[in-house]
Design a protein around this nucleic acid. Structure first.
Lengths: 160, 160
DNA sequence: TGGAACATGTCAACAGCACTGACATAAATT
DNA sequence: AATTTATGTCAGTGCTGTTGACATGTTCCA
């Protein structure tokens, strides 16, 4: 819905979309004393049970020291458990406990809601053809959209 | 291009897309001793010259203390300058110097390339109809796409 | 069998970037 | 003249990333 259909606008929209996208779960996580790093680990272990440490490191692109810090929290508070690999006993296979699955579910729920809303905007025909721009704009917190639209309009007028 | 057309896949793709999206500029910024916070400030000041501190704080959603730390770097190294507001002399209007505009240009260039590539994928008809999913997938580093596809396929098989 | 390679865990130090709380100054507003 | 607003700054803290070094147990290969 913002004016210019340039790739540069997409860059900015991606920033705003991501800002609000991570804001939802952040509020829930804070109640548990967890952060985004915990969220990412919990999410991937929940969706891909049996993930190894090495696989998780490759997905998250962080060091094992960083991973271990948050993983220790999640294991210590019984959101995740480890099982020794069967074929390779060096590996630690990661699984969510029921508490872990429940929390992961709460987190994905608020994010799904936002994504669903963004997709609904597209399908309501408000954006024809459906564009990446409209999707990202729909990801922004509804009350904030006017402000983003105003900001971006300001640019279209001043620079080219 | 990944299999399931669910909103949950979009959540994951947004993670991967953003991960690679910020990876490009990070490499450039490291050469200047700057981080992501510097990037965000430089980007918005470049695109919206004359932005005030308060406006920038509202865009970035950080505290003035956080902003000030990186802004001091950018001003001290002559990438950004301040001008006292004309109508309200309390305000500091922010502008990029030529060095600032140049660096901002370099940064947006690498990100634009990635976005353009993602859009090109859509328009090449490889994704009909164009979807948010295809766009986000196209944002992922090409060499990494197979790995992401493999990971996500693994889920479609195991859980539902 | 013995040594190399591998998967993982851990300790310590450090950097970037957020936060809170408190306080200061100059300009605008009432 | 008093208050509010826009901004700057100091000090302390937390989360999450990094590097480098070292340890343990497992697997694999010569």
């Amino acid at each position: 819905m913002p004016a210019g259909e340039s790739g540069d606008d997409l860059i900015e929209l991606l920033f705003f979309a991501y800002r609000d996208f991570v804001g939802d779960p952040d509020r829930i996580l804070a109640q548990y004393g967890f952060g985004r790093a915990h969220h990412r680990v919990l999410h991937f272990v929940d969706r891909y049970p049996g993930l190894t440490i090495a696989e998780l490191l490759d997905i998250l692109r962080i060091t094992k020291q960083s991973l271990n810090r948050v993983l220790k929290d999640l294991i210590g508070q019984d959101y995740i458990t480890q099982k020794t690999g069967t074929s390779d006993r060096r590996q630690r296979l990661l699984f969510c406990t029921s508490a872990g699955t429940a929390l992961a579910g709460d987190l994905i729920r608020v994010q799904s809601r936002r994504v669903a809303r963004a997709l609904a905007n597209l399908e309501a025909g408000r954006a024809m053809p459906p564009s990446a721009e409209s999707f990202l704009f729909g990801m922004i917190e509804p009350e904030e959209r006017a402000a983003v639209r105003r900001l971006m309009a300001r640019r279209v007028r001043s620079a080219a």
